[in-house]
């Protein structure tokens, strides 16, 4: 479904991705890991055809994609319908006067006869149906995240790119999201730096290092149990532990916000 070859990207003179290559098959659920600033969000934006790579290429369903190719026409319509990107900050996605309009925005653009049914169905599926007449910006961070997700799902995409979807969620909603995503019949690529969630979000992990290169592509469980790799990716840390009078220090990878 996706083929990424020797992808490079940078902002001004700072590289954000260097020589990244991988494949994603339809129906896969992957998690993209990496420390802050290693290029996770940039990679998702390139996969969504929003940023152009400096070098290398991205193919979706056999066709090379780039912002220039996606300006208009049938290629754009198909790609935008099939590929959805959930931004880390849901505020940037919400601009319609009501939650209902927000979720129905995509289907209405396509002129779908069942736009109303889709909006109500996905609002109920993510649990925001009671807010349908409210402006999205009056909702909490977690509710905004759900509305933004429903707005993407209303188009029934084939590929969902989720940028830190649990960052603004409380523990209960995070649990709901993990189950919800596991049941979605779409290809998923989810970024997170919360290691406790990584295994739940995808059986396969892609890991970006602080040098902006892909340093791991394989089973998530194997990566999470490899302390050397976790340390190399700056996903593990060491600090002093105090157990009464006993004090010791070791590397570990427990949860941090």
């Amino acid at each position: 479904m996706i083929r990424v070859d020797a992808l490079c990207h940078g902002y001004a003179d700072q590289p954000s991705l260097i020589d990244v290559s991988f494949r994603v098959e339809a129906g896969e659920k992957l998690v993209l890991l990496g420390a802050n600033g290693c290029g996770k969000s940039t990679l998702l934006k390139i996969l969504a055809g929003l940023l152009a790579p400096r070098a290398g290429s991205v193919h979706y369903a056999g066709a090379e994609i780039s912002p220039a190719l996606l300006k208009r026409g049938e290629a754009r319509r198909r790609f935008r319908r099939e590929v959805g990107l959930l931004f880390q900050n849901p505020d940037v996605m919400l601009f319609n006067p009501t939650v209902y309009d927000e979720i129905a925005f995509g289907p209405r653009q396509l002129g779908l006869a069942d736009a109303d049914a889709r909006a109500r169905h996905w609002a109920a599926a993510v649990g925001v149906e009671r807010y349908l007449s409210r402006p999205p910006f009056t909702l909490s961070g977690g509710e905004k995240q759900k509305v933004a997700l429903a707005a993407l799902l209303a188009l029934e995409p084939k590929l969902l790119l989720l940028d830190e979807p649990a960052a603004a969620l409380d523990p209960r909603t995070t649990g709901w999201l993990v189950d919800f995503l596991a049941d979605l019949p779409v290809t998923l690529l989810t970024t997170t730096h919360q290691l406790a969630l990584a295994g739940e979000l995808g059986a396969r992990a892609l890991v970006l290092g602080e040098d902006h290169r892909l340093i791991y592509d394989g089973a998530t469980d194997a990566f999470l149990s490899d302390m050397e790799r976790l340390v190399a990716a700056n996903l593990a840390h060491a600090h002093r532990h105090r157990h009464g009078a006993l004090e010791h220090r070791h590397w570990h990878a427990h949860e941090w916000p």
Partner: peptide, 14 residues
């Protein structure tokens, strides 16, 4: 910049 990209990603036609 994210606001601009989000609008772009959510619009099927320009």
């Amino acid at each position: 910049a994210d606001f601009r990209l989000a609008l772009h990603s959510r619009t099927i036609r320009p």
